[in-house]
Each structure stands twice: as structure tokens, then as C-alpha cells.
Simulated scan of single mutants.
Amino acid sequence: MPAITTRRATLADLEAIVPLFDAYRGFYGQASDPARARDWLRERMQRDESVVLVAEREGAVVAFTQLYPMYSSVRTARTWILNDLFVAESARRSGAARALLDAAAEFAREQGAGGICLETTRDNAPARALYRKAGWSEDATQWYSHTFGG
């Protein structure tokens, strides 16, 4: 199997990431809208509001993860939220997801972050198994959300 490599994405990677981001949104029940996906990613990247990492196989982008900064007053440190992670169907079980998890953790450490977190649904057993195998801890913290339209 060809090797998976990871790196931080740039705006030059935008068109390669858009189909993955659109499919990621589709996985969570959103209608396909590549223009909206492109605009969202471009704006986040241009404003340095997120960090996008990509996984490549034979020079093609096959997966991405998007990290958002957050701050911990208690720890007086920046932390990162691994908000999005998606692997193209053709690249699943290739090690791309694990490579991105490891790259995200390394990025956060290099930035001097106090930690990195993510959230997934309780019924996403494959993802939860991967996260545990990659050294992530699962806790019983109760998360609440308050959504506003759209």
C-alpha cells in the first residue's frame, strides 16, 4: 500500500479539499453545497481562524482534518479542537485517519498547546476505537449545545 504523508494545507490545496469537506458535511446530514464548502474553508484559512492538515497518498489529497483554536483560562494555555476529520472512501483503512490524528497532536504540541480535544457521537464505534488506539482519552463529560438556526 502506498505511504500516507501529512502536511499543513495552504490555499493552493483548497480545490482538493473542497470535495472532502463537502462529503464530510454530507456525512452529518447536510445537503451537498461545494460552493458553500469552498467559501467556508477559504475564509477560515485566509483569516487564520483554523488550521487544515491533509493526508496524501501518491500526491493526491485523500483526507483532511480541521483544527480550531480555543483557550483555557484554567490552564492559561491555548488548546485546539479537532473539529473535522474525513477520509475519502477510497482511502479508508489506509492509515490516513491515524496519520492525521498524530499530525494534529504533533502540531498542537509544537504550538505549545495545553491539549487537543475532539468530540464524536457515542454510536461512532469505529472512530472511538481509532481515537483510543491513537492514545486519546475518553471521558464521561457531559456536553451541552445551544444552536441558532441554519
Rank of each mutant, 00 (worst) to 15 (best):
P2L: 09
A3M: 15
I4H: 06
T5N: 12
T6L: 03
R7I: 04
R8T: 05
R8H: 09
A9N: 07
A9D: 03
A12N: 14
D13Y: 04
D13F: 08
L14G: 04
I17L: 04
V18S: 01
V18A: 06
L20S: 05
A23K: 03
A23V: 09
A23N: 07
F27W: 13
Q30S: 15
S32I: 08
P34K: 08
P34N: 14
A35T: 14
A37L: 02
R38F: 14
R38Y: 15
E43L: 13
E43D: 15
R44M: 05
M45W: 06
M45K: 01
D48I: 07
D48W: 04
E49W: 11
S50Y: 10
S50T: 00
V52F: 00
L53F: 00
A55G: 09
E56S: 06
R57I: 03
G59L: 10
G59C: 11
A60G: 12
V61R: 04
V62H: 00
V62T: 11
A63E: 02
T65S: 09
T65F: 04
T65C: 12
L67E: 02
Y68R: 07
Y68K: 08
M70V: 11
Y71V: 15
Y71W: 15
S72M: 10
S73T: 15
R75G: 05
R78S: 11
T79M: 02
W80L: 05
I81K: 03
I81A: 09
L82C: 05
N83L: 12
D84S: 07
F86T: 01
F86M: 10
F86N: 01
S90H: 12
A91V: 03
A91W: 13
R92T: 05
S94F: 01
S94C: 05
G95H: 03
A96N: 03
A97I: 02
A97N: 03
R98L: 13
R98D: 05
R98V: 12
A99I: 00
A99L: 07
L101H: 01
D102S: 12
D102K: 11
D102I: 02
D102R: 15
F107I: 02
A108S: 03
R109G: 02
R109E: 08
Q111Y: 06
G115V: 06
C117G: 09
L118V: 12
L118Q: 05
E119C: 06
E119G: 00
T121V: 09
T121Y: 13
R122K: 14
R122F: 11
D123E: 15
N124M: 08
N124G: 15
A125I: 15
A125E: 13
A127G: 15
R128C: 04
R128T: 08
A129F: 03
Y131S: 01
Y131H: 08
Y131K: 04
R132Q: 15
R132D: 09
A134T: 07
W136P: 04
S137P: 06
S137K: 15
A140S: 13
A140H: 14
A140G: 07
T141M: 04
Q142G: 12
Y144R: 10
H146G: 13
T147Y: 06
G149K: 02
G150D: 11
